[in-house]
Nucleic acid binder design. Structure first.
Length: 841
RNA sequence: GCCCGGGUGGCGGAAUUGGUAGACGCGGAGGACUCAAACUCCUCUGGCUUUUAGCUGUGCGGGUUCGAGUCCCGCCCCGGGCACCA
């Protein structure tokens, strides 16, 4: 076959090439790794997808980046663990069941099949032997086992609390799943507070470590900041105050009130105290003539929705009420009135605060409304008046603290309270325990049993997993069908063997996703959920990739699980963080809006793949924007990407070079400056390309990696079409290297070209090409000549030019002469071989 | 209010250490090929002007420096997170 006829016959046809290679990779197990692999282990993981059907563009973006990294790191000689699984429990399957009657299991299995098939069409490769699914009985068994271990350790408990109830989902939610406006993050429905008995994980035990170990992990700053905010650590002091009468005389039998403050330094300025209306001592503290008003106020607060209550603003007079009682300010021994206010909540600190209107704006507003004293204890800047001063400064009106600055006062005040035996420095967190019960069917059952005689008992390990029944009617009752399923419900008590009822709550699906990355390591084991030694070899995940939407929920929970399981001895002692590095890819929008069915702006990846090919789509994802930024579908240069691939094909296909060269006579030859030695030039460009693409891959700069490849290809086109004589071996080597560096990015076309160029090997078994340093050093470079900082000339000079020569050359340049205007430079700055700058006055 | 990002041509973006601002792609203009068109290939493409050249230009105002998109100070705008949390 002559080269001409080859190019004519084999056009670039992605729809033929891509499925063929995908099949080949799957059959050869190209991206399967063993735990015992002797190469350096690397764990690259994309976030556990919820199977909602065929992949959407967000998935494509995620898996394109992940796959690129897996392939690149494999070329670099690592054994890369690249698994995938499915977060297959959750509400959509159950809602569908209520609508159609189809069991969530078969519904979910069908969605998983769709998602798997479309992920493979992207050309993303995984070790498919390691697939896990949350709803798999074997997986459920270990989820329940972990629950029991946490329960034994006191890290899972049942407790009564005012919890978030989503009216749309008919279940409770974790604090993390409620948005700031009081709606459900999933359904958008209103969330209300209900007093219920629920299961919790004691994540607060780890509040401190979750915070302090953040600096050690390589995560985006903003994700870490979000976690810091969410944990909400504050340092302060708890101290007690005595209940007194108006004159400061102790009230017989009254219990002391504990307040929490972060500003003990300002205590001399406390002119009143405020309790939460839910505070247990409210009734005792209310005097008879204030009784009516207090009761009315508490009623009103109770009727307020959480969102209304937490809303700032409103009339301060309507937001509080006097109880009639007083507390003794221990610093100045003066009585201060006790008020109730809706903005003080029982769930934080002790539900009681000291009010220092001089240094707290909220207290200032309250004091103004109720005509209470305002005493400044920190000297505000001059001309500062009419509002609270929350900044630092010198202490005033504070007796023995006067004259000190804010910071040392704080310390002194805490020491004094501790010495007096009425208080101690404490640290508080905003983080609450993780509420994990869900009143829904399609989740992992909580393996507990309620016995009338023995109370709540854990299911025996040997009886795991507790499975979900198959014969279930899904009715729109708002009740989990488990509540009315006798066979599921009735069981025997693991302790007394008497009749007992099963727990009908299932686990939050975030429980499933808090340990799945561990299961990938030993997916087949029925002895352990993960082998400690293997976990030690693979964990932590070297590169985790996913969306910013999981910044708090999933990422915090998974960190908690890892720490807890490590402390309990089921994971290596030194494994304290699950994800060493995290990359959060940007979201995809379309026409400025989030892609959604209701907006009708969804772009189906499979259609794009049909029209342009998976390689073009992958390329477009990498090229359009830096991967961490949000990107609009309208900014995807699919045509440009497809064009690039066609140009690559034309060049690299056997006979392509000759074909291009044949056009030269008819074409306008390249206007670009011809290099004195085109062969050396190509070798230099080739080696620079390898280096550039490699470092760009490492630093997640896929957009510039693509640019460099395009630039390189353009340059080859020009060189071939110019009259220059090029050594064919050097040119072929350049093309081969281009294919190699592109192979993680566009795996199909490069595999095909590699094969038809008869390289004799499979490109995805090749190593990353070595950079030959000797080609990196340029002999000449462009020297910039500036006069007063403005560019006046560019000179081609030897890279090792001396300062003397450079300055002489620059001075003899006509343009430079013109701008020097006959004057002697007062100063000459030389940064060789890049720049010479003459300063003239 | 506090804490993170970010602001560069018509558009997406590049500039990795303070040293040619606008790489690469899209869009646009012109040309070659063609009977013609498409494809393909080549050239040009921040703005202004008196266009072989000059001036100007990276949200705004200052500053440091021989030199600032990059560093410092003060603002404006956009995106995100947290927020009566005591």
């Amino acid at each position: 076959m002559t080269s001409e006829s080859y190019t004519e016959q084999t056009q670039y046809d992605s729809s033929e090439i891509e499925p063929r290679w995908q099949k080949h990779w799957a059959e050869c197990g190209t991206y399967q790794v063993e735990n015992s692999d002797p190469r350096l282990h690397l764990y690259v993981l994309s976030m556990y997808p919820y199977p909602s059907g065929p992949a959407h563009m967000g998935h494509v973006r995620n898996y394109t980046f992940g796959d690129l990294l897996v392939r690149y790191k494999t070329m670099k000689g690592h054994a890369v663990l690249s698994p995938i699984g499915f977060d297959s429990f959750g509400l959509p399957a159950e809602n569908a069941a209520i609508k159609t009657g189809e069991h969530p299991r078969s519904f979910t299995d069908a969605r998983i099949a769709e998602l798997t098939s479309s992920i493979l069409k992207i050309g993303a490769m995984y070790d498919m032997r390691r697939v896990t699914k949350s709803h798999d009985p074997e997986y459920m068994r270990w989820t329940q086992w972990i629950f029991l271990k946490l329960y034994e350790a006191g890290l899972a408990y049942r407790g009564k609390a005012a919890v978030n109830w989503c009216l749309g989902c008919n279940t409770v939610l974790a604090n993390e799943q409620v948005l700031a406006d009081g709606t459900c993050e999933r359904s958008g429905d209103l969330v209300e507070k209900r007093e219920l008995e629920q299961w919790f994980f004691k994540i607060t035990d780890y509040a401190d470590e979750l915070l302090t170990s953040l600096p050690e992990i390589d995560w985006p700053e903003r994700v870490k900041t979000m976690q810091v905010n969410w944990i909400g650590r504050s340092e302060g002091v708890d101290f007690e105050m005595q209940v007194v009468d108006k004159k400061g005389q102790p009230v017989e039998g009254a219990k002391n009130i504990t307040v929490y403050t972060t500003r003990p330094d300002t205590t001399f300025g406390m002119t009143f105290a405020v309790l939460s209306p839910e505070h247990p001592q409210v009734v005792d503290l209310t005097t008879s003539n204030q009784k009516m008003q207090v009761e009315n106020f508490c009623e009103k607060v109770k009727s307020l929705a959480d969102t209304e209550r937490l809303a700032t603003g409103g009339n301060p007079e309507d937001r509080g009420v006097f109880t009639g009682s007083y507390l003794l300010n221990p610093f100045n021994k003066k009585p201060v009135p006790i008020y109730l206010a809706d903005y003080v909540i029982m769930g934080y600190g002790s539900g009681a605060v000291m009010a220092v209107p001089g240094e707290d704006q909220r207290d200032w507003d309250f004091a103004t409304a109720f005509n209470l004293d305002i005493i400044r204890t920190v000297e505000p800047p001059p001309d500062f008046e009419g509002e609270a001063y929350a900044g630092d400064g010198k202490m005033i009106n504070s007796d023995w603290l006067n004259g000190l600055d804010t910071k040392e006062t704080k310390q002194k005040a805490i020491e004094w309270l501790e010495a007096e035996g009425i208080g101690s420095g404490t640290v508080k967190y905003r983080l609450r325990d993780w509420l994990l019960s869900r009143q829904r069917f399609w989740g992992c059952p909580i393996p507990m049993v309620h016995c009338d005689d023995c109370g709540t008992q854990p299911v025996a390990e040997s009886d795991l997993p507790v499975l979900l029944p198959d014969d279930v009617d899904f009715l729109p009752t708002g009740q989990s069908p488990l509540n009315s399923h006798d066979q599921f419900l009735n069981t025997t008590c693991p302790k007394c063997k008497g009749a007992a009822k099963r727990e009908t709550d299932t686990m939050d699906t975030f429980v499933d996703s808090s340990w799945y990355f561990l299961r990938f390591i030993n997916p087949e084991s029925d002895e352990v959920f993960v082998e400690k030694d293997d976990a030690s070899n693979w964990m932590p995940v070297d590169q985790y990739i996913g969306g910013i939407e999981h910044a708090i929920l999933h990422l915090m929970y998974a960190r908690f699980f890892t720490k807890a399981l490590s402390d309990l001895g089921y994971l290596p002692k030194d494994l304290r963080e699950p994800f060493k590095a995290l990359f959060t890819q940007g979201m995809i929008r379309h026409g400025g809006a989030k892609m959604s069915k209701s907006k009708g702006n969804v772009v189906a990846p499979e259609e794009i793949i049909e029209a342009y090919g998976a390689d073009a789509l992958r390329l477009a994802h990498c090229q359009a924007k830096p991967p961490e930024e949000d990107v609009d579908w309208e900014d995807f240069g699919l045509d440009g990407c497809r064009k690039f691939l066609s140009r690559l094909w034309r060049l690299a296909v056997p006979g392509g070079v000759e074909d291009l060269k044949a056009q030269t006579g008819k074409q306008t030859a390249s206007q670009k400056e011809k290099s004195s030695d085109p062969n050396a030039h190509i070798q230099r460009l080739t080696n620079k390309l390898i280096q550039k693409v490699g470092t760009d891959f490492e630093r997640w700069a896929f957009n510039t990696a693509v640019s460099s490849c395009m630039e390189f290809l353009n340059e080859l086109y020009l060189l071939i079409q110019s009259e220059t004589e090029i050594d064919r071996a050097i040119l072929d080597d350049a093309i081969s290297k281009l294919l190699l560096v592109l192979s993680p990015l566009v795996p199909h076309i490069t595999a095909e070209l590699w094969q038809i160029r008869a390289q004799g090997t499979h490109i995805h078994e090749e190593s990353w090409p070595e950079v030959d340093e000797k080609f990196l050093t340029d002999e000449t470079t462009t020297l910039i000549v500036q006069v007063n900082g403005k560019v006046r000339a560019q000179l081609e000079v030897a890279t090792d030019i001396s300062e003397e020569d450079a300055v002489a050359m620059a001075l003899s340049n006509e343009k430079v002469k013109t701008h020097l205007n006959g004057k002697e430079p007062t100063r000459t700055i030389a940064r060789l071989p890049k720049l010479v700058n003459f300063v003239v006055s």
